[in-house]
């Protein structure tokens, strides 16, 4: 076996995909568009529908790109969007 196959530089397990949830509380949104503009992965767009106050809340279009960094939660001035990242269970790699 070649050395390259035997020793993997970043541990023996593959990196797991990030899991989580992105939640929009639509009735709190005032449609400022900060989350849509400053999402690093362009997950959100401004939707066509109206909320109860007549603003256009954001809509999730590419949730597969979301890394649940939480910047939308920080930059939202109306506390209307948040993301919860499910913490991965600690693997037993490298220590064995």
């Amino acid at each position: 076996m070649r050395v390259r196959e035997r020793i993997k530089p970043f541990g023996s397990e593959k990196p797991q995909p990030v899991k989580g949830e992105l939640i929009i509380i639509e009735d709190r949104c005032k449609g400022c568009g900060f989350c849509v503009e400053y999402c690093p992965n362009d997950v959100l767009i401004v939707s066509d529908k109206f909320n109860s106050k007549g603003y256009h809340p954001p809509e999730v279009v590419h949730e597969e790109n979301c890394r649940y960094c939480g910047f939308c939660q920080l930059v939202c001035p109306d506390f209307a969007i948040f993301s919860i990242e499910e913490k991965a269970v600690e693997s037993k790699s490298n220590t064995a």
């Binding site: 009735d27 709190r28 005032k30 449609g31 400022c32 900060f34 106050k53 603003y55 939660q73 920080l74 930059v75 939202c76 001035p77 109306d78 506390f79």
Partner: peptide
């Protein structure tokens, strides 16, 4: 959160300061 939505205008940055 029972007092939300707050009175600040759309596009105001005070909510960001509170968030921080």
């Amino acid at each position: 959160m029972d007092r939300m939505p707050h009175i600040w205008c759309p596009g105001c940055g005070i909510g960001n300061a509170v968030s921080a």
